Simulated scan of single mutants.
Amino acid sequence: MGLTGTDTVCGIVPMFHAMGWGLPFAASMLGTKQVYPHRFMTPDSFLSLMEQEEVTISAGVPTIWQGVRAALTANPDKYDLSSLNRLTCGGSAPPVEMMRWYWNSFEIEMIQGWGMTETNPLGTLSRKVSKRSQVGISEDQQFENIAKAGLAMPGLEIEIFDEEWKPLPHDGEAVGELCIRGPWIASEYFNDPQPEKFHDGWLVTGDVAKMDADQYVIICDRSKDMIKSGGEWISSVDLENHIVGMPEIAQAAVVAQPHPKWDERPVAVVIMAEGQSLDQAAVIEHCSKVFAKWQLPDEVIAVESLPLGPTGKIEKKTIRANMEKEGYKLPDLR
């Protein structure tokens, strides 16, 4: 992410998160100025802090940057962000449309990363230009790069495996269990044996991913959030990122709901942008331009808020639990 001693870094993710294992230590080692938002976890407090402290780089999850974007859109001239030039984003794949918005509006580069507490913490990183061979590529190609989780950090090995633990081709198409190993990657849990989390020296991450010919990792979903419909996998993350590309929609979560014939079907739960109302047909039509008919959400539901975890990530398990508690049924089962 190009952190130096001349930067001012604002870490928004709480210290108990994986970020607390990495960014504060790297910043301290380099002599980087660090500022933190304390308990004031609102977009306006982040923006005020960034302006006052002349922050150059900040780190957060996609929902944080979506909230900040909404605040900037509502008051485009309220904050001076001339010092800010990089935003790192992890926790889940950020929408490309949002990353383009930050660049086009403020020339702020979004940097996508992937990691876990068990990887201490950074596993991959993706910038608009990450290799010498990419110098001079088009802006569209640069955004294709940061749409991916990135390249492995030096010293680490990353692989994708099928259900029989056979390595899958790095062709950008094959989808498998993402595994990682290296000198600082966890090989066991202290006093808590979990053999299913490790295989032959590899850490089994719980993420489902692809790898392309340039060795970029492309996270498809958390294995627990993938939707199995009619024997085929549907990525909730891909649907979410496409849906929030609509200006009428501020945030989206896609979750599986049980179906007696298809096993599971996707349902989209969305927060509308201020002053907008839901047009379900328009959302389905928007998705149909990219996704096959069987991948489309069976229903789109507008809500006032989505449950967030302590790091700001959307808690899909809570959404699923609430829908079960409320007795939700898919449209064709009512």
Rank of each mutant, 00 (worst) to 15 (best):
M1A: 07
G2V: 06
L3I: 15
T4E: 05
T6Y: 07
T6K: 15
V9M: 13
I12Q: 11
F16R: 10
S28G: 08
G31A: 06
T32K: 08
V35F: 12
P37C: 10
R39V: 02
E51F: 00
Q52C: 02
V55P: 10
A59C: 06
A59L: 08
W65H: 04
V68H: 09
R69S: 11
L72K: 05
S82L: 07
S83D: 10
L84Y: 10
T88K: 01
C89V: 15
G91Q: 06
S92M: 08
P94T: 05
E97P: 00
M99K: 07
W103G: 09
F106D: 11
E107R: 12
I108A: 05
E109F: 08
I111H: 01
T119M: 01
T119H: 01
P121F: 03
L122A: 03
L122H: 00
L125A: 04
R127P: 00
S130A: 02
K131F: 02
R132Y: 00
Q134L: 03
I137R: 01
Q141L: 13
Q142T: 04
I146F: 01
P167F: 04
P167W: 06
L168M: 10
D171V: 13
G172K: 11
V175D: 04
E177S: 09
L178V: 07
C179V: 09
W184V: 06
W184D: 06
W184A: 03
W184N: 08
W184K: 08
I185F: 11
N191D: 12
Q194F: 10
Q194W: 10
F198V: 13
F198D: 12
V204W: 03
T205A: 07
G206P: 10
G206M: 02
D207G: 08
D207V: 03
V208P: 03
K210G: 01
A213Q: 13
A213E: 14
Y216V: 00
I218K: 08
I219D: 01
C220P: 04
D225G: 02
M226G: 00
M226R: 02
S229K: 12
G231F: 12
W233Y: 12
W233D: 14
V237Q: 12
D238A: 11
M246K: 13
M246R: 13
P247D: 08
A253V: 14
V255G: 07
W262V: 05
R265L: 12
V267S: 06
V269F: 11
V270K: 04
A273M: 07
S277F: 10
L278V: 07
A282E: 14
S288G: 07
K289L: 11
V290N: 00
K293C: 03
W294A: 09
S305K: 15
S305N: 15
G309W: 04
K313C: 13
I314T: 15
I319W: 12
R320G: 09
E326V: 09
G327H: 14
G327V: 14
K329T: 15
P331C: 14
D332F: 15
R334A: 15
